[in-house]
C-alpha cells in the first residue's frame, strides 16, 4: 500500500518538481510536501489529519537528533534536581529513588543515541545549556521560577517533559521504518518514557493533583497558553482513523454506554503523536 501511495503521488507530480538540482534529502522533502498537498486536495472531507503521514518527511538522522535533544534535556533536568538538598524530596524514599532511575534511563538513552548517530556518520551536536525556569537566564518571565525548590513545580515540569517524550517518539517511528533496529530501539525507549510519565503522574496524584496515571481530559490543565500548551494539544482525540480513512465508529461499538465513554475513555485509550516542530518548540523554552 505504501508503494502504491508513492506511485500515486509520483503520478500526480509535475515534471519540473524534479528539475531543480537537489540532494537526495531535499528531493524527498519536496516530494513529501507535494504529496501532502495532493492528498489534501483529493480529500476535501475536512480530514485535516489524513495527510499527516505525508506532511513531514524527516530522515532517520533528523529523528535521532531530535531524540537526542529530548534525552539530553531530560537527563540534565533530573541530574540538576538530584543535586538539590535532601529536603527538596518527600519523606517517601521511593520517590527520590524513582527520579534516580529516570535520570539513569535518560542518560542511557542519550548515550545510545550518540552511538547510533555516530555510526550513521552523523555529527553529534555539542551539549546544549539549559534554564529550566524557562526565563532564558532571566531575560524573560519564568515559567517555573521554583522548579528546583518546590517539588510540585518540579513534578509538573517532569510530567510535561515525559509526556512530550512519549508523543515525540510516537511521531518519530514512522520515519524509522527503513531500519528495523533503530525502529525497535525507538519503540523500546518510547514505552520506557511512558512508564516514567505514569510514575510522575502517580506521585503528583498522591500529592493531591487532579491527574490520572494516563493523559485524560479529566486531568487539571497544567499548561500555559502559547508556551507549554502544545504538550497536550490534540492529545485527547475522540476519533481514530482506519486504513481506508473512515473514522472508527466508537459510538456503535460494544464498549458500554455512559456519558464518559466517548469523551473520556476513548481519548484515554489512545496516546497521540506530536510533530517534531512542536516538540522542538517546547524544548526551546528551556534551551539556551
Amino acid at each position: 500500500m505504501n508503494i502504491l501511495k508513492l506511485v500515486a503521488d509520483l503520478a500526480a507530480t509535475t515534471p519540473n518538481q524534479f528539475e531543480q538540482p537537489a540532494d537526495r534529502r531535499d528531493a524527498l522533502t519536496s516530494l513529501g510536501r507535494f504529496g501532502a498537498k495532493t492528498l489534501a486536495a483529493a480529500l476535501p472531507l475536512g480530514l485535516g489529519s489524513v495527510p499527516a503521514l505525508a506532511r513531514d518527511t524527516r530522515t532517520i538522522l533528523d529523528s535521532l537528533l531530535l531524540a537526542l535533544r529530548l534525552e539530553r534535556l531530560q537527563n540534565a533536568f533530573y541530574t540538576q534536581a538530584l543535586t538539590a538538598p535532601a529536603s527538596f524530596f518527600p519523606a517517601d524514599t521511593s520517590i527520590r529513588a524513582s527520579i534516580v532511575k529516570m535520570q539513569a534511563h535518560q542518560q542511557q538513552h542519550a548515550a545510545l543515541l550518540v552511538r547510533l548517530i555516530s555510526t550513521s556518520n552523523g555529527d553529534v551536536p555539542a551539549q546544549p545549556r539549559y534554564d529550566f525556569t524557562g526565563s532564558k537566564n532571566n531575560t524573560q518571565a519564568a515559567l517555573f521560577p521554583s522548579v528546583f525548590t518546590n517539588f510540585d513545580d518540579f513534578l509538573t515540569l517532569a510530567q510535561l517533559l515525559e509526556d512530550t517524550s512519549v508523543r515525540a517518539y510516537k511521531a518519530m517511528v514512522e520515519f524509522l521504518v527503513q531500519d528495523n533496529y533503530i525502529l525497535q530501539t525507538a519503540l523500546q525507549i518510547h514505552s520506557t518514557e511512558s512508564r516514567h510519565a505514569t510514575r510522575i503522574r502517580m506521585i503528583r496524584r498522591q500529592r493531591g493533583a487532579t491527574v490520572k496515571p494516563w493523559p485524560s481530559p479529566a486531568d487539571a490543565d497544567i499548561t500555559v497558553a502559547n508556551k507549554t500548551a502544545v504538550v497536550y494539544a490534540t492529545e485527547h482525540a475522540t476519533t481514530q482513523l482506519l486504513a481506508d480513512y473512515t473514522s472508527v465508529p466508537f459510538r456503535l461499538l460494544p464498549i458500554g454506554s455512559g456519558a464518559n465513554i466517548l469523551t473520556e475513555s476513548v481519548p484515554e485509550a489512545f496516546d497521540e503523536p506530536l510533530a517534531a516542530d512542536s516538540v522542538e518548540g517546547l524544548l526551546n523554552l528551556f534551551t539556551l
Binding site: Q184, T192, E193, S194, T198, M202, P273
Partner: peptide, 26 residues
Amino acid sequence: GKLIKDKGYLLLAGKIVSVEARHAAY
C-alpha cells in the same frame, strides 16, 4: 513494530503501546 508494513498501522500500534506501558507502570 518491525513486522508492520503499513505506517498507519505502525502509528496506531504506537498510540496503544504507550497506554499499555502506562497501565504496566501503574
